[in-house]
């Protein structure tokens, strides 16, 4: 797991100790721009742009999850679509059974589904945590390219399972006819839904920052940079990594649940390896191991997708060229360009 050393300055993160570093300012700036754009679009009667902002917040949340494993923990997971998709399916399956008033998985004795967002989010956290624990426990025995590939293999397994499980639509996927609800709020209102997404994104960013400032973050950083030193300090690196991987999967899972609700649909495409690649692209575009990197990456990626898609049917070609240019010439991603190569948060 030494492959990431060159990527990230060896300076241990001094998160938050300098109150108004450049990166903090930019992070807040991005959040404010996104919120202002959503509110402005809402007032202008343009729900499309509000939903686009929700999409950015959700994709960013998935990226925040991956960033914890990939950026801070140095675990290059090429299988995070698994958690994104499982989160989506939790929301979809819960809503499906709530709509039908049938017990979960059609098994009598199990409780009926639920269309309450908090219940679904907690379930997504729980299920993704368990799956991430199983995948992490096996995968963390490997390192380097093997780790990349074994996480990909697990995601492919879950993908094929979803494709051929007919109860919940298989390849066709599962529509969510009525958006899941939160008591007291009208979740169908685009701005309300955006606020929910943004609140969860903010919470995830806040928690990540807290953790990275705490002993856990110091241990995780040390596990990435110098495993032996961590071991001589009496801390086993593996449980630390596993914990980070599990939390990472859980955050991405919640993003998946939100994404399913945004689209009113969940399907195997949420589990495909292209999706894993996209989440990775977002993290790298924004800047690996930067707290607000995934948000910057998500804004850039979704905007490119929307703008280029409107211009040409060969838009993926140009997306590829932009990505390639970022890797070759703009190391450190957007945050690297904006906030310089040093890392504060």
């Amino acid at each position: 797991m030494t492959s990431l050393e060159s990527h990230i300055p060896s300076r241990s993160p001094s998160l938050g100790r300098r109150p108004l570093s450049r990166e903090t300012v930019i992070g807040w700036g991005l959040i404010l721009v996104l919120v202002a754009a959503a509110v402005f679009a809402h007032l202008a009667g343009e729900p499309f742009y509000v939903n686009l902002a929700s999409r950015i917040a959700i994709v960013a949340l998935a990226g925040v999850g991956l960033n914890l494993a990939l950026g801070f923990g140095g675990m290059v997971s090429f299988g995070h679509a698994a958690f994104f998709g499982i989160g989506g399916y939790v929301a979809g399956i819960g809503a499906f059974h709530a709509f039908d008033q049938s017990p979960l998985f059609g098994l009598s004795g199990l409780p009926a589904g639920s269309d309450l967002m908090p219940v679904l989010w907690l379930s997504a956290l729980l299920v993704c945590g368990l799956v991430a624990y199983a995948i992490g426990a096996i995968s963390l025995g490997t390192s380097g390219v093997y780790f990349i590939m074994i996480t990909l293999a697990f995601a492919q397994m879950i993908y094929y399972f979803a494709v051929s499980w007919p109860t919940y639509g298989g390849e066709d996927g599962l529509p969510i006819y009525i958006r899941n609800s939160l008591p007291g709020l009208d979740t169908n209102n685009p701005l309300v839904f955006f606020t929910l997404c943004m609140a969860l994104l903010g919470l995830a960013l806040f928690l990540t920052q807290r953790w990275m400032n705490a002993r856990f973050g110091a241990a995780l950083t040390m596990a990435r940079l110098n495993e032996t030193r961590l071991a001589t300090a009496g801390v086993e690196p593996r449980p630390i990594r596993l914990a980070a991987f599990v939390i990472s999967g859980m955050i991405t899972g919640v993003a998946g649940a939100l994404f399913a609700d945004l689209n009113g649909f969940v399907g195997p495409s949420m589990l495909s390896w292209h999706r894993s690649g996209e989440i990775m692209v977002i993290v790298i575009l924004g800047g690996v191991g930067r707290l607000c990197g995934p948000l910057a990456g998500a804004i850039l990626f979704v905007m490119m997708e929307t703008l280029l898609g409107g211009l040409t049917e060969y838009w993926q070609l140009f997306l590829g060229v932009v990505l390639l240019a970022v890797v070759l010439f703009a190391r450190g991603g957007v945050m690297g360009l904006l906030a310089g190569r040093e890392r504060y948060a």
Binding site: S3, L4, G144, M280, V281, L319, G320, V322, L323
Partner: peptide, 18 residues
């Protein structure tokens, strides 16, 4: 590192396919 390689060659896939 492997991360840059994965991203760059992922971009190459898009370019080649389209």
């Amino acid at each position: 590192d492997h991360l840059d390689q994965v991203l760059a060659t992922f971009a190459l896939i898009l370019i080649f396919s389209e």
